[in-house]
Computed example of a mutant assay.
Amino acid sequence: MSKTAKVLVAGSVVLLAAACGQARSAPVPAAHAVTSTTATTTTTPKPAPPTTAEAQQMLNTLGYQARQANGELDDETKHAIVAFQKVQGLPRTGVVDDATAAALRSPRTITPQHDTPGTHLEVDIAHQVGYLVTDGKVGKIYDVSTGDGTGNRITPLGDMHVVNQIDFWEYAPLGRLYRPSYINYDGIAVHGGEPVEPVPSSNGCVRMTNPSIDDLFPIMHVGFEVLVF
């Protein structure tokens, strides 16, 4: 009958088999491998800013009057950019910077004050823009400048209607008016002929660029509704 003895040799267990006179070492468990993982961060590349022609097309699609998508940063394009920046609550620079480019991709929409059938003009004093609304939907958006609020230089609020039009230049005491459409009998008109500043700066009228007035004058007949709010 064979006998087996256990002997500790240098930290290992050695089995002595008496029957065969051979010694064999018991296997030592292998050490567990340790795997090191490093967290990686994936960054999304910033979209390239639109070209001037692309920005013009985007503005026109949204209703802002950049007019021709010709790639030129002309006056009407600058006014369209400023009008867009006014509505989006951005600095009024007239330049498509990073913030403006981002807003063009995800713009704030406009809800008109009146959703009645037909077409009317809404003048938003707070944002200094005008909305041409047809059947409750905003179609075109114009850059405007209203009264600066000093003295009598105040644009009246309310639902008004065109009472008279002059289809040419009018030389008024406070300056030249291009194709004015008067909305009350106190001399307040929607007109062109003066610089349209990014802030309220008129004598009380609703001031627009001449091309914008050329758009609006043919439809702003006597009785046409103009809502100033």
Rank of each mutant, 00 (worst) to 15 (best):
T41M: 07
T111Y: 08
H114I: 13
T109P: 10
A39H: 06
K86M: 09
S106G: 07
Q113Y: 12
T43W: 01
A33Q: 11
T44V: 10
G63I: 00
G63Y: 01
A103G: 03
H79M: 13
K46M: 01
A48W: 01
D98L: 02
A83V: 11
V96H: 03
T44K: 00
I81S: 02
E72V: 11
R105Q: 09
G94S: 07
H32M: 14
L104D: 07
Q65C: 10
T109G: 14
A83K: 08
Q113W: 12
R105W: 05
H79D: 14
A69T: 06
A66I: 03
T35C: 04
A55C: 00
L62T: 03
K86D: 09
G89W: 06
N60T: 00
E76A: 14
A48K: 12
A80H: 00
A30T: 15
T41V: 14
S106D: 14
A31F: 01
D97P: 01
V82R: 04
R67F: 13
A80N: 06
P47W: 04
R24Y: 14
T100D: 12
A99W: 04
T42K: 11
A102Y: 03
S36H: 15
T109K: 15
D74Y: 08
A66L: 02
Q88M: 14
I81T: 12
T77C: 11
A23V: 10
T42S: 07
T61W: 07
Q57W: 01
Q57E: 13
A99C: 07
T37H: 14
A26N: 06
T52F: 10
K46F: 07
T51I: 08
A69D: 01
L59D: 04
M58F: 04
T35Y: 13
T109Q: 15
T43E: 08
R92M: 11
T38K: 02
A39Y: 00
K78L: 12
A55V: 01
P47A: 00
Q65G: 11
Q68G: 09
A53C: 00
E54M: 05
T35H: 14
Q56G: 04
A55N: 06
R108N: 12
L62A: 11
G21R: 11
A99I: 06
Q113F: 07
T42I: 04
T37C: 09
S106F: 03
T41I: 08
V95F: 10
T40F: 04
T37W: 15
T52Q: 15
V82W: 05
Q22S: 14
T111M: 08
R67D: 15
H32F: 13
G71R: 03
T100V: 09
Q113N: 13
P91N: 06
A80P: 01
T42H: 03
A23P: 00
Q22C: 13
R67A: 09
A53L: 02
T77W: 02
N60K: 04
A53T: 02
T43S: 07
A39L: 13
A39W: 10
A26Q: 11
A99Y: 03
P112V: 09
G94L: 02
